[in-house]
C-alpha cells in the first residue's frame, strides 16, 4: 500500500507521450486508504444488516422459539472463542504500536499472535459446526444461525488473509514508523471483524 506513493515518471518503457501524472492535490486530512477502508466497512456493516434483518424476521416477527426445538447453542465454547478474538484485537493494536515505534520484534510477534488467535477462532468455530448436531436445513433458525456465524467466519478469513499479507511484508523488512499503512489499514478491518463478532455473539448465543 505504500505503493500509492507515486514516483516520478520513468520513461524507459517507451511511452514517449507523457511524463508522469501531476501529483494529486490532497483535499482532505483523511488519508485515502483509511477512508476507503472505513467506507468498505460501512458496506460490510450493511451486509450484516441484511442478515440481521433475516434474523429479526425469523426470530421476532415469526415468533419462532430460539433456538429451534431440539437445537442447542454452545454458549460457553463460543464465549471462549469471543475472548480469543477480542484478545487478537489487543495483539493487533500492539503490532501497530510497535510499528509506530520502529520496534521490529514487537511487530513480528504482534502480527504472529494475531494470526494465531484468529486461526484459533476459526478452528474452534469449524469444530463447533461439526459437533453442533444440527444442520442449516433443520430449521429457519438453524439457517440464520449458520448464515450469520458463517458470514462472520468468512470475514475472519478475509481479515486473516489481509493480515497474512501484512505479516509477510513485516518479515521482509517493510514498514517504518512513518510508513505503516500496510499494517494500520488491515488492522482497522480486523477490529471491525472483532466488534461484529461481539454483536453476533450477543444476539445469537446470549439473547
Amino acid at each position: 500500500m505504500e505503493a500509492a506513493s507515486i514516483e516520478a515518471a520513468d520513461t524507459s518503457h517507451g511511452h514517449g507521450d507523457h511524463h508522469g501524472p501531476p501529483v494529486a492535490h490532497h483535499s482532505s486530512t483523511v488519508d485515502a486508504q483509511t477512508l476507503g477502508m472505513l467506507l468498505f466497512i460501512v458496506s460490510e456493516i450493511m451486509v450484516f444488516g441484511g442478515f440481521f434483518t433475516a434474523y429479526f424476521f425469523i426470530r421476532i416477527v415469526n415468533g419462532n422459539p430460539w433456538p429451534a426445538e431440539g437445537e442447542e447453542l454452545p454458549q460457553l465454547i463460543a464465549g471462549f472463542n469471543t475472548a480469543v478474538l477480542l484478545s487478537s484485537s489487543v495483539t493487533m493494536h500492539w503490532a501497530l504500536e510497535a510499528a509506530k515505534h520502529g520496534n521490529r520484534r514487537g511487530m513480528k510477534l504482534g502480527m504472529l499472535a494475531t494470526l494465531l488467535l484468529g486461526s484459533t477462532f476459526l478452528t474452534v468455530q469449524i469444530n463447533e459446526y461439526v459437533h453442533l448436531g444440527f444442520a442449516p436445513y433443520n430449521s429457519a433458525q438453524a439457517s440464520i444461525f449458520y448464515g450469520l456465524t458463517g458470514l462472520h467466519g468468512a470475514h475472519v478469513f478475509i481479515g486473516l488473509t489481509l493480515l497474512l499479507f501484512a505479516t509477510v511484508r513485516v518479515f521482509k523488512g517493510h514498514f517504518t514508523p512513518d510508513e505503516h499503512q500496510g499494517i494500520e489499514v488491515p488492522g482497522i478491518y480486523w477490529h471491525f471483524v472483532d466488534v461484529m463478532w461481539v454483536i453476533v455473539y450477543v444476539s445469537v448465543y446470549i439473547l
Binding site: A54, V61, N62
Partner: peptide, 8 residues
C-alpha cells in the same frame, strides 16, 4: 416453530 419468512 421452525419456518422461514417470505415477506422478509
Amino acid at each position: 416453530g421452525r419456518q422461514g419468512n417470505v415477506v422478509m
